[in-house]
Every structure is written in C-alpha cells, then in structure tokens.
Design a protein around this nucleic acid. Structure first.
Lengths: 146, 146
DNA sequence: TCCATTCCCATTGACGCCCATATGGTCCCA
DNA sequence: TGGGACCATATGGGCGTCAATGGGAATGGA
C-alpha cells in the first residue's frame, strides 16, 4: 500500500497533538518523508497534507506560467504563504495549530481522509456535510457513482 | 530546507523590534546573508525582504519588460530608490521602521510569509484578506491544485 | 548632554523527545 | 471454539531545550 486511502478519526490531546493513522504513517515512511507540507484546500474547509513533493508539483505548475505574471504571484501567495511545514513527533503525531483549526473548524477530533497522493484533515461533521452535498449534487445531475 | 517557505506571526516589542522566525534565519545564515534588502511589493501592501541578490531577481523581471515602459520605470523607482537595507540584531530581530509600518499597516504583530527566494512582511489581517481574495479568484476560474 | 540604536543577559512559554498506560485486535493453544 | 497471552496503535504526561520576548547597560551620533 503506497497511497493514502480510507479514513479515520482521532482525538486531539491536551497538548493539541493528534496521531496520524498508522496506515498513513507507513506510506510516509516508505517514501522517506519526515517533514510534511500542509496547505488550505482551494474549495473545501480542509487542510491537505503530503510530502514536500506536493509543493514541487505546485511550483512546476507556476514555472509553466510566466513567473512574473499576476496569476503566478497570486498562486505563490497561496502556495508559499498559505502552506506550512510540520514535523511528526517520534510517535507519529502532529500539532493542530491555530492555522489548521481556524481554517477547518477542528476542535477536539480530526478526521483523516486519504486522497491518493496526499491526505486531508477535516472537522468530522464538516466532512459528513460536504460528502452529503457532493452526493446530492451528483444525484441531481443524474450521474452515477464512479 | 534552503528556501523561505511557510509562515509565522510574531509580536513587536516596546522598542519596535520583532524576531525573524528561526526557520527563515537559518535560510539566511546558510546563504551567508547578514544584511537584508527590503522594498515595497508591487501588488500587495507588503514589504519584500531578502538578501542583496534579491535585487538581481527583480532586475531580471524589469529586463523582461520593455525597459522604457511606465511599469518598468515604476518598478525601478520602487526597487532601486524605494528599498532600504536593514540588519538583524544578535538575536535575529529587525526593527519595524515607519517605512515598513506606513506601507503595510503593521502596528503590533508581523506576519512573515515565505515566498521561496524571499519573504514578506504583512499586517496579519491584510494577509488574510488578500489570501481569501486570491482563493476566491482561483475558485471562480475553476483551477485546482492537482 | 540627550536620545536613539546596538549589544548583552534574563525570563518564559512553547515545542520536541522520552517513557508510561490504555485499548482493541489477532494469534496460538488448550 | 473459547480463553488468554501478545502485539500494535493510540493516548497521556513529565521534562529538557530552544526560540521568542522583555529589559537593562553600553555605545555612538546629533
């Protein structure tokens, strides 16, 4: 298993730490990743988390455009400034900073959602709602599940 | 980590000093930079800060445009004439001068925003607004990180 | 001489590292 | 097939270290 799949909910302790699910940790350690890059999702109130190569991907995308264009400048603001690097502690936990809490609404529990190359941090109820809304939208457009 | 990434907010003390985040300081010292060059951003109410080589970067940008265009002329005025050199104190702090305060609106707290080759100083709430606007623009154009 | 800046040292509070405990699931063996 | 030992994960908390901050002393320019 070398990709982030499935989901799990863990509790934040008194110090503001939360364990990354074991399955996700082994994906990370298989990739030799010890520092994580986190940024605000562009659509949902969720934080996306992955290895530094996630940032590389954005930077390639920016490099493809005119590096001095307003669009590139704007994207740099989001990607460089809107992202943070965090480290896991020896037990595989990460800190829930205000940056993460404010954007997601997370308070006591964190839902980890696998997205393939990366995973996301959600406030559990917000995820339920977003999922229900997505289902509803899909249904109303007469689409079948993939 | 040899680039300015992530972000952090620090408080200005009674003497008008503020600590540069440790991660940024190590980037500077790795590059052997002791003196910093600061000037006003062209788009946002923020001060851009970097080593002296930051000048080269923006001179290239100006060279890319018509050197006699009003934009290039304006950039030259800001970069060459509007910039100031500042030094860090032994603890890694810098002074918040009126030059910086007036342009950014900074009063009690400073947000340090990594931009890759350089970093910026923002008034925290102004950053929130600019980022929200950037995200909104991106969303409406239907762009996604992946 | 006065004021502002620079340097030096003290404090404190957050974070990282360590070890301990709980909990749930699995495997083995009777 | 049921019980019990064992293991892995998640969680809780103590403690040391370092970054951020605050304030006093020294320095230098007006």
């Amino acid at each position: 298993m070398n990709r982030f799949l499935s989901h799990a909910t863990n509790r934040i302790d008194a110090k503001g730490r939360v364990s990354v699910p074991s399955a996700f940790r082994s994906v990370l350690s298989d990739g030799g990743v010890r520092e994580l890059y986190c940024f605000q999702d562009f659509v949902f109130p969720a934080i996306s988390v992955g290895g530094p190569e996630l940032l590389d991907r954005f930077e390639r995308q920016m490099a493809a455009e005119d590096p001095f264009s307003p669009e590139a400048n704007e994207m740099s603001l989001l990607v460089h400034g809107g992202g943070v690097f965090v480290k896991l502690d020896p037990e595989g936990r990460l800190m829930m900073t205000d940056f993460i809490r404010d954007f997601t609404g997370i308070s006591t529990d964190v839902m980890f959602v696998g997205r393939g190359d990366y995973f996301q941090l959600w406030e559990p109820q917000a995820f339920q709602k977003a999922q229900a809304a997505a289902r509803e939208g899909r249904k109303s457009r007469g689409l079948r599940p993939e």
